[in-house]
Simulated assay, not measured.
Amino acid sequence: MPAKTVIAQHAAYRDDIGDLVTRRPVPGPGLEQVDPFLFLNHHGPQTYPPNNRGLPFGPHPHRGFETVTFILHGELAHRDSAGHESIIRKGGVQWMTAGSGLVHAEISPDDFKRQGGPMEILQLWVNLPSRLKMTTPRYIGVQAPEIPTLSADGGKAMVHLISGSWSGQTGPVPSLTGVFMSWIELQARGRAGFGSLGGRSVLLYVVSGQVTVNGTVAPEWNLVRLDLEGDMVEIVAQTDAVVLFGHAEPIDEPVVAHGPFVMNTREEIVQAIRDYQAGLFEGVAV
């Protein structure tokens, strides 16, 4: 099987939100998206003191895409206008399909604000094709024990499988568009390999540590861009490392984004703003 070729690497740039340490590898200079992966924020790692204000993401709207949020450390409370509500803790994931429109809040629970503690969160935006942009909103929150953790390379690599199938297991989130999503913990010299990737876009971000990707060194806080044609990816840790790894078929449609709305045309963006202002995203108080 031909290995995918590393085309480029994109270092995440700092874009702190108040006292929240934030790095963003995409979008960034020279990289608008990794179709269908639109946006990735890496919050932390940092430690919040007792009696902190918590995360700053109060009620805000979305339409036309999905958010996938990985709680690597700490905990995150979610509430949205469709009535979904949960607190997801370390190792868990929130997968929200905004679809036709939701208002949601992502904040720190009261216990975390009172006690403080370590916090590291990744949030990924995944585009939806035009046929699904107005789909019914949904939300799936899964705690760490619900996520299969699959061992590779004699236990030197642990693959936390969120969606899609690997090594005979299937993740707990059924993706509407066949997205494979995982995060991987590797010990130094541990390796994990993935095949059957021809024609699929790969999202590979080094959260911490240093790895090689098909033989190319990739340090932490770098997104590795790979070609579409190759079929295989092998990740080998040079140090203890954590990697966000996903893949999907490109949508290959126009993308028009305005703040929290991602559609195919400017007219659809204008309509999304009007619908939000008219209160059409509201269902319950957030």
Rank of each mutant, 00 (worst) to 15 (best):
T239W: 10
H258Q: 09
G259Q: 01
G259W: 03
L244G: 08
E253P: 01
I235V: 09
E229L: 15
G246S: 13
M232P: 12
H258N: 10
D231W: 02
G230A: 10
V233W: 07
E253H: 00
P250K: 07
D227K: 00
E253K: 01
A237T: 06
D252M: 13
P254N: 08
L228Q: 14
R225Q: 15
G230D: 06
A237V: 03
I235Q: 05
G259F: 00
E253G: 02
M263F: 04
V242I: 13
G246E: 05
P260I: 01
V236H: 09
H247D: 06
M263H: 01
V243A: 11
V236L: 10
V243K: 10
D227E: 06
L226D: 11
V242H: 11
D231F: 02
R225G: 12
P250S: 05
V233G: 07
E229N: 14
T239R: 09
M232D: 15
A257M: 12
Q238C: 14
P254A: 03
P254T: 05
A257V: 07
D231A: 08
F245E: 10
V233S: 06
P250Y: 05
M232Y: 15
P260Q: 02
F245V: 11
I251V: 12
A257R: 08
E253W: 02
M263L: 10
V255H: 00
V233M: 08
Q238M: 14
T239H: 12
T239M: 09
A237Q: 07
G246V: 08
D227M: 02
M263E: 03
E253S: 02
F245I: 11
T239G: 10
E253C: 02
F245L: 14
L244P: 08
M263V: 02
P260G: 01
V242K: 13
D252N: 14
E229H: 15
A257G: 07
V255C: 01
V262M: 10
V236M: 09
P260R: 01
H247L: 06
L244I: 05
E234A: 10
P250V: 03
M263N: 03
D227V: 04
A241N: 06
V256C: 00
V233I: 11
D231Q: 08
D240S: 10
M232K: 15
P260T: 01
G246C: 12
G246M: 07
H258W: 11
L244F: 11
D240H: 12
I235H: 04
E229S: 15
Q238R: 14
E229A: 15
V262K: 05
V242N: 09
V242T: 14
